[in-house]
Computed example of a mutant assay.
Amino acid sequence: MTRTLMITGANRGLGHAIAARFVTEGWRVAMLNRTPGGPGTALDIRCDLRDPAQLADAFHRALEHLGRLDVCVANAAVRTFDSVTHMTAEAWDDAVAVNLSGAFRLAQLAIPVLRDSNGHLVFVGSQAATHPFEGGGAYCATKAALKALHEVIVLENGESGMRCSLLSAGAIRNRPMANDGWKIRPDHVAQVLWDIVGLEAGAFVGEVEVRPTRPLPAPVTGIARLQTL
């Protein structure tokens, strides 16, 4: 039986690396992307997570294509960096809508299906949830709330057979930027996720952190703090 994966935000970076890894392993993959992209053999469905109706429609289309759901990965996120005093209301609302509400609504849709399949829900979090930095008010707050949401889902589904994991990484080399040589390669994080979902059903990883082997030398400020952990 071919196993199946549904993932959000797989058009580039970590999401693309995750989708590509599962495709390589022979899984059937469906991606929910605001911007098209991803491995060519995976189903690519245009979806803006800020729109609940669009998300529900995309989820059911992806599920119909997959036939069943073994692993669902909530990966999509927006990163808006600005001080609390200068951040616009629109930027804050956008971060909450994608990083938190989008993950929440995806979980609502996926959990009943994953209970039936004894499947695995994975939230892609961030070390920003526990290591805040200047300019990261929206990003840090939404990732911290996602961490709490994950814990609640674990408690509520302890006897269902469904597993739920939180994968939190430091700075990932998602796009060309400064300090790339110090950041974690997306395929390395994808490997960790692959290992997590590959555990036998009698155990699961509740939460795991992925850190760079060579931390950026201090002193640093802003998001670069995630490269010093």
Rank of each mutant, 00 (worst) to 15 (best):
R3L: 11
R3G: 11
R3H: 14
R3S: 13
T4C: 08
T4E: 02
T4S: 13
L5W: 07
L5K: 04
M6R: 03
M6H: 01
M6Q: 08
M6F: 02
I7Y: 06
I7Q: 03
I7T: 12
I7P: 08
I7F: 10
T8Q: 00
T8L: 01
T8K: 01
T8S: 15
T8V: 02
T8D: 01
T8E: 03
G9E: 13
G9R: 05
G9S: 08
A10E: 10
A10Q: 09
N11V: 03
N11P: 04
R12D: 06
R12E: 10
R12C: 02
G13H: 09
G13I: 12
L14N: 13
G15K: 10
G15R: 01
G15H: 06
G15W: 07
H16V: 01
H16E: 14
H16P: 01
H16N: 13
A17P: 03
A17Q: 05
A17R: 09
I18K: 11
I18D: 12
A19D: 04
A19R: 08
A19V: 06
A19H: 12
A20F: 01
A20S: 15
A20N: 09
A20L: 06
R21I: 07
R21A: 15
R21Y: 12
R21M: 12
F22Q: 06
F22V: 08
F22T: 05
F22E: 06
F22G: 07
V23M: 11
V23F: 03
V23D: 15
V23G: 02
V23R: 07
V23T: 14
T24W: 05
T24P: 00
T24A: 15
T24S: 14
E25D: 15
E25N: 13
E25S: 14
E25L: 14
E25F: 02
G26F: 15
G26D: 03
G26K: 11
G26R: 13
W27T: 01
W27F: 15
W27I: 05
R28Y: 00
R28P: 06
R28G: 08
R28D: 08
R28E: 08
R28H: 14
V29Y: 04
V29E: 02
A30L: 09
A30W: 00
A30N: 07
A30K: 02
M31V: 03
M31N: 12
M31Q: 15
L32N: 04
L32S: 03
L32T: 05
L32C: 04
L32R: 00
L32F: 03
N33K: 02
N33V: 00
N33S: 02
N33E: 02
N33C: 04
R34L: 08
R34F: 08
R34C: 01
T35C: 09
T35F: 12
T35Y: 14
T35L: 11
P36I: 06
P36C: 10
G37M: 04
G37T: 07
G37V: 10
G37Q: 12
G37I: 03
G38D: 05
G38F: 00
G38M: 02
G38S: 09
